[in-house]
Amino acid sequence: MSNEVKLYALGGSPFVCRVKIALSMKGIKYENIEENMRNKSDDLLKYNPVHKKVPVLVHNGNPISESLVIIEYIDDVWKGVPILPQDPYEKAIARFWAKFIDDKCLPAAFKVFGSNGEKQAIAEACEQLQILENELKIRGTKFFGGDNINIVDIAADFIAYWLGAIEEATQIKFATREKFPKIHEWADNFLNCQVVKEILPSRDHIVGFFKKKFGKV
């Protein structure tokens, strides 16, 4: 059986990095196709006509969109290192937290920077991060996945890496180590994983990108 894997990607995207981490964990070789989001390729528009964005994984000609959906697909198709828990209940809980990060934490964080640090936006973002902080306290584990990273840790790559870089770019700091010690401890552990370190774009690149985006240069 042929096993052709292509990833339509954008180097600085946390959502693309999620998929790359999952592929790397499984040891999957793939062709990385870098997209220009201002001038999207015909293939990207064909493979993801609904959202028209990256990442898109194409496996033997079949496209899969949305980073968390792609990660579940990768985990189902390629055995080896599990990315989702095997136990049905634990798997459901992991899906819940990954979705919470996408539906609550990320929009709240982007709202802070989009509003130029408006007080109410910061309060809302801190409220969501506090829920994650409490969950890590309750778990008492190195990662959301226990001793090893799983889909929840990968979903939170933005919080671990991009959030601090955007804070630096905008000079709007709210997710401090004093306020969220468990999240910072988790982030340190996550960013020290070899499989994560190899994938992440340079911090300077992210800081520079967001300085431009938010008019700080």
Rank of each mutant, 00 (worst) to 15 (best):
F100C: 13
V112G: 02
A121F: 03
N60H: 13
G80N: 11
I64S: 06
I28R: 06
R95D: 02
V81W: 06
R38H: 11
A123E: 14
V69Q: 12
P85V: 05
E118W: 03
P49S: 11
K40Q: 09
K99I: 01
I28M: 11
D103W: 03
C105L: 12
I71F: 09
M25N: 02
V58T: 09
Q86T: 10
N39Y: 14
R95A: 07
G117T: 03
I70R: 09
D43G: 04
I101L: 04
V112I: 03
A121G: 07
S115H: 10
P63I: 06
I64Q: 02
G27Y: 01
I93K: 10
I101H: 03
N32C: 14
L68A: 10
E35W: 03
K111F: 05
A98P: 00
I71W: 04
S41R: 13
M25L: 15
K20C: 13
V19M: 08
I71S: 09
H59D: 05
H51G: 10
K26Y: 05
H59I: 14
A121E: 06
L44H: 05
I122V: 15
V54A: 14
N36I: 12
E34Q: 14
K26T: 06
V56F: 02
K46L: 15
V19W: 04
G61M: 05
G114T: 00
P107Q: 12
M25H: 01
W78H: 10
W97G: 06
V112W: 00
D103Y: 04
S41E: 09
E127S: 14
A121I: 05
E35P: 03
